[in-house]
Each structure stands twice: as C-alpha cells, then as structure tokens.
C-alpha cells in the first residue's frame, strides 16, 4: 500500500512539473470534414520532415474555433480546421484573447451529395424540390402550411411514387449547416410567399427542417448513413462527397439541377451544393512551435492539394490552378485574414 501512495504522489508531482517542457509538436483542432485531409497532410509532413506528426483533433468547426481563440501559448492549438469561413465574432474573440493575426488558407471544396442505393431509380432533383421535401413549412396557395408532402410524386409528378425519407446529419454537424445554407436557403428564395416575409420569419421558414419523420437525423457518422441506404433503397442520404466516392459501387448520387455529383462537376462549380473548406493558422505560433511553416508548405504543395495531389484520393475537390497559386503565396506570406476585404 505504501508503494502505491508514493507512486500516486509522484504522478501528482509530475502533473505540476509538465508546464516547463516546450512543445515541439504542432497541434491541430477543428472540423471533422477537414479531418481526413488534415491528417493525411500531417502524416506526409511527418514522414518527409522527420518531425513529430502533428496531433489532429476532430472537434467540429465551432469547437475548434473556441479552442483556437482561447489565447496564445503552448496550451492552445496552432491551427484550426473549418468547413466554413471564420466568423467576424470569432475573429473578435480571437483578438480579445490576444491573437491579432490569423492566416486563412483555403484548401479546396467539399461537395454535399444526395444519394441512394444503386437499386433505386435515377432521379434528378432541383433545389426547390428538395426544399419542398424537407422544409417544416411550405407555401401552398400563397400561405405557409405544415409540410403536406408525404411522397416525392406529390411534389412533382415526374418524381417517383415513394415515401419521402431523407437521412441526414444532425444540427450539430457542419455538413448540416452547409446543407441548410446551400440548399434550403436557395430553395426557399424561389418562392415569393417566403420572400415577402419579415427577416426573422423568413430565416425560420427557410432554415427549419421538418420533424414529422420525412427527415431522419442519422447521426454524425456518415458510414452509418451509407449502411442504412443500402438496407433501404427508398431512402435518400445526405453526406460528404468522399463517402460517395468510396462507395460508388453501391450508391448512386442524385443529380441536382441536372448536374451529377462528380469530381469534375464539383470542381468546375456546375454542381451547386459545394462549399469551401479552410484551415486557420495562429501567426504568433509560427517560429515558436517548430514546423508550422513547413506544414503550410506541405498542405499547399501541388503534390497535396493540386489536381493530382494525394488529397484528391481522399475526396478533396481542388481549386482552379490560379487560385491555388494565389492561396499558396498568401499562406506562405502569413497574410492575416481580413473579412472586410
């Protein structure tokens, strides 16, 4: 028993002594969407440079920003990944904590796809149709009523005569935020009844998703949605392009506004539901924690985020060449982000 007590005391002491030793490993937090790309670069960076592989945590975009903006110093992360652009309020929080310069690096695009099992019929959807299928309240005869549509064919006779059953991410997910912004917001703006509403009421009408069983929150795990689609050919799933890419033998992506969710269509911008993904670097940490600059260099190299780079194997949709070039230069120059510009 005595030995145990000593060991415990020793551990407690060790806990106090740890603050003294300097960090030589990059720490990254943030979006789970960017996680596969960030980790792939981290690993290559470690292999090439011989430095320790950065620790990448998957905290979600919002959680990552919170940690990132908690201050400058060893106990705070150096980089945060984001599946959307940093917000003005987050930059302010950063500035308040003494972080006055943050470098923004856009790494490419991520498509959000609506897909079904291969055995389901091929259906081309439009954004207003998706809005009508998923919104909580829809305009009927000039009035907003609780969503009356139970089957796709009730929205448009050309759509199949099956129950509306969409499996998608829960509200905590960045994919859900992007889906609401890119599909629901756009979809609702095509209806004059909603456009005529007050600002708050309009936002609510546009962004509230039905809760009567037509939309099923299937959890953060996209693999789970894929499995459920295979079990139920009538269901439609919403998830990131990389999961469609990995499962193209069993899943079929639905064209939106006539554009198939393919690599080429997302890269060219023809497929309408895609978003930019980013990472943000704390400038004050560059040069203090070794390797940050080299990490940015690796991430923005043609071998990584270029047309043929290894990140495209992981499902990243690259930016056009000129934009990549510009992004590389501004990233390596550590140009602080300015949302006003």
């Amino acid at each position: 028993m005595k030995h145990l007590a000593y060991a415990a005391a020793g551990l407690a002491l060790a806990a106090f002594a740890t603050d003294a030793h300097a960090r030589d490993q990059i720490r990254i937090v943030g979006s789970s969407t960017v996680f596969p790309f960030s980790t792939a670069v981290a690993e290559t960076f470690g292999g090439k440079s011989g430095m320790p592989v950065p620790v990448v945590e998957s905290t979600g975009t919002g959680g990552g920003m919170k940690l990132f903006c908690s201050g400058v110093g060893e106990s705070t992360p150096d980089i945060t990944n984001a599946s959307r652009r940093i917000k003005e309020s987050e930059l302010e929080a950063c500035a308040k904590a003494g972080i006055d310069a943050v470098t923004e690096v856009q790494i490419g695009f991520d498509g959000i796809v609506l897909a079904s099992d291969k055995s389901a019929p091929d259906v081309s959807l439009t954004i207003p149709q998706i809005f009508l299928a998923l919104a909580k309240e829809v305009p009927v005869d000039g009035k907003l009523v609780p969503n009356p549509y139970g089957k796709w064919s009730e929205i448009d006779p050309s759509l199949p005569d099956v129950k509306i059953e969409v499996l998608g991410p829960p509200p905590t997910s960045g994919t859900r935020d992007a889906f609401v912004e890119l599909v629901m917001d756009h979809g609702c703006s095509t209806f004059p009844e909603i456009e005529a509403l007050e600002k708050d009421a309009k936002t609510a009408a546009c962004q509230t998703i039905r809760e009567d069983g037509g939309y099923v929150e299937a959890g953060e795990n996209d693999n789970l949605i894929v499995q459920k689609l295979q079990a139920n050919p009538n269901a439609v799933g919403i998830f990131g392009y990389s999961f469609l890419d990995q499962n193209m033998d069993s899943l079929n992506g639905h064209p939106i506004d006539g554009n198939e969710p393919t690599f080429e269509n997302i890269a060219s911008g023809a497929y309408p539901v895609s978003r930019s993904i980013y990472f943000y670097v704390k400038n004050a940490h560059v040069g203090v924690v070794p390797g940050i600059k080299e990490f940015i260099e690796e991430f923005t190299s043609e071998a990584a985020f270029g047309e043929e780079g290894y990140l495209t194997d992981k499902g990243l949709i690259p930016m056009p060449e000129a934009e990549r070039e510009a992004m590389r230069n501004s990233a390596l120059a550590l140009t602080p982000v300015n949302l006003g510009s």
Binding site: A14, T18, H21, Q25, S32, F35, P36, S38, T39, A42, E43, G46, P52, V53, V55, V56, E57, S58, E220, N221, D222, N223, G240, S242, F243, D245, Q246, K314, G315
Partner: peptide, 29 residues
C-alpha cells in the same frame, strides 16, 4: 479523440485509447 501517428514514449506524450481508435476508424470513409 485525436489522430496520433507517433507512438507515445511516455505518459506525457499525446496518445489515444483503444475505444477511441474504434470510433475514429468507424468514421473513416
């Protein structure tokens, strides 16, 4: 719950745990 590609050499190094690894792999495409 993090991507740890270096084997930790002591209790102060970043590490992960078996169930966390299960969770991370289950979410990989």
């Amino acid at each position: 719950v993090a991507f740890i590609a270096n084997v930790p050499s002591g209790p102060l190094d970043p590490a992960t745990a078996l169930p966390v690894q299960v969770f991370l792999w289950s979410d990989s495409p």
